[in-house]
Computed example of a mutant assay.
Amino acid sequence: MSLTLLGSALALPTAGDGEGFHAPSPQEFYWPIFGSGDWTFTRPMATFAISILILSVALVALTKKAAIVPSKGQWLVEQAYDFVRNGIGRDTIGSKDFLRFTPLLFSLFMCILLNNLFGIIPPIQYPTMSRIGFPIALTLIVYVVYHIAGIRKKGPVRYLSEMIPRGLPKPIYLLIIPLEYATYFIIRPLTLALRLFGNMFAGHMLLLLFIMGGEYMLIHGGIGLKITSIGSFLMALVFTAFEALIEFLQAYIFTLLAATYISDAIHSEH
């Protein structure tokens, strides 16, 4: 059992307290370590720092002695890099412009993937991206990059003008212009951050519910509930495997959308 689940379980009332099962709440995602107010250092901050340290050490260690015949570790890194470089960067942005954005895309993918997988890796079992601040921070990086890339490629006037589709009746532009600008400057970054946050938050809440509910029924319930707790634990196992797939897909989708937004910003209309 992870520290998150253990701490939540210890907070549950016993049968003698006269209270029933307490479902997990958003407070399970905060976990302050030290400090207070705006200067609180929380568990998500610690796990994110750990992920950066792990990625930095692992990538340097596995690639500093690169060989023509790769070791298993080097091969894994190369497969991940090729997946992002060719499967996302080149296919989405195009062979002419993708290379300069590949380091950003690879960093985003690896960082999000590891922090998502923390949700099912003991003893952490805490998806960092379930705290909205982290998806927002990564989205702001993508937001700045694709707007700057578009402005540098086309100039500010042409960049803004190409956001508006051509050939529509003039009265329609009264509606289309604000909608298009809202899409590029507000809706895209908002949905990019919320999609990642929402999936990680909901998935971790369900895992907490299955495990804490099963534990409560096993420890505090009668014989019927003790038998029922087996189903709850089995669902937790099944959902853990499903969550691993979702965590990979969310890292892929975030990176793919980042590449799509960059491609839209630097390429002209056809």
Rank of each mutant, 00 (worst) to 15 (best):
L3H: 09
L5K: 02
L5G: 00
L10R: 15
L12D: 14
T14N: 13
D17R: 14
D17G: 09
E19F: 15
E19I: 06
H22K: 15
E28L: 05
Y30T: 11
W31D: 11
P32D: 01
G35F: 08
S36I: 10
D38E: 12
D38F: 15
W39E: 10
F41T: 07
T42H: 07
T42Q: 11
F48D: 02
F48P: 00
F48M: 13
A49S: 11
L53H: 03
S56L: 10
V57G: 05
A58R: 05
L59I: 01
L59S: 12
A61G: 14
T63H: 05
K64L: 03
K65H: 13
A67S: 14
S71V: 04
W75N: 13
L76E: 13
L76G: 09
R85N: 15
D91Q: 12
D91R: 13
S95E: 11
K96F: 10
D97T: 04
P103K: 03
L105E: 03
S107H: 06
S107Y: 09
L108W: 02
M110G: 10
M110D: 05
L114P: 09
N115A: 04
G119I: 02
I121T: 10
P122Q: 06
I124M: 07
M129V: 07
M129F: 15
M129I: 09
R131Y: 09
I132L: 15
G133T: 03
F134G: 00
I136C: 05
A137N: 03
L138M: 14
I141Q: 03
V142T: 09
Y143N: 00
Y143I: 06
Y143Q: 00
V144F: 13
I148S: 09
A149R: 01
R152S: 11
Y159V: 00
L160G: 11
S161E: 15
E162P: 04
I164A: 05
P165G: 12
P169V: 09
K170V: 14
P171R: 00
P171V: 04
P171M: 10
I172T: 07
I176W: 00
A182D: 12
I186M: 08
R188C: 06
R188K: 12
P189T: 14
P189C: 08
A193C: 10
A193Q: 04
L194S: 12
L196Y: 02
L196E: 00
F197A: 03
F197E: 03
M200H: 10
M200I: 00
G203L: 02
H204L: 07
H204D: 12
H204P: 01
M205D: 08
M205S: 08
L207V: 04
L208P: 02
M212V: 11
G213C: 01
G213Y: 03
G214I: 15
M217C: 05
G221P: 00
G221L: 02
G224S: 08
G224E: 13
G224Q: 07
G224F: 14
L225H: 07
L225K: 11
L225P: 03
S229A: 15
S229R: 04
I230Q: 03
L234H: 12
M235N: 05
M235G: 04
L237V: 10
L237C: 15
T240S: 11
A241N: 06
F248R: 02
F248W: 15
F248P: 03
L249D: 13
Q250S: 13
F254W: 06
T255K: 00
T255P: 01
T255V: 13
T255A: 05
L256E: 04
L257G: 05
A259C: 10
D264T: 08
D264M: 12
A265I: 02
A265P: 09
I266T: 00
H267E: 13
S268G: 13
